[in-house]
Design a protein around this nucleic acid. Structure first.
Length: 113
DNA sequence: TGGTTGACGGTGG
DNA sequence: TCCACCGCCAACC
């Protein structure tokens, strides 16, 4: 990242790419995603991007806030919680058990689905 | 070019 | 444990 003038959309695209690769049943915090995208301090910006993603192939519900809090989700935080539960993500009340399902680095592109 | 806006994060009360 | 405040960053206007 040496400075190669990375254009704004690069960051956005990279974030989306990262989120797209979060395995089912796993989650990552906005901060984690930011870091995986190459900008450790841009958690807020990640949320900003998520806000307008709306892409079906981007499991934005797997991106949660730090501390296991759900964070936001286009109006319905309840839906987000439901989706996570459906994927087997462990929840303690309305909090996610980060210990068991949080990922801080992308999985290897293993062939087997 | 500059200011505002948040699906955030961490600390302190 | 919950709420308020401040700091950070990229996208938008």
């Amino acid at each position: 990242v040496t400075t190669s003038r990375e254009q704004p959309r690069d960051f956005k695209a990279r974030v989306l790419a990262v989120v797209r690769r979060i395995p089912r049943g796993r989650v990552a915090t906005y901060g984690d995603v930011a870091e995986m995208a190459g900008h450790p301090r841009a958690a807020r910006a990640v949320g900003n991007i998520m806000r307008g993603c709306g892409l079906p192939d981007v499991p934005c519900h797997r991106v949660i806030a730090a501390g296991g809090r759900l964070g936001g989700y286009g109006g319905n935080e309840v839906i987000k919680r439901g989706l996570l539960v459906a994927e087997g993500v462990p929840l303690s009340g309305s909090r996610v058990n980060l210990r068991s399902c949080r990922i801080t680095r992308l999985p290897k592109a293993h062939k087997r689905r």
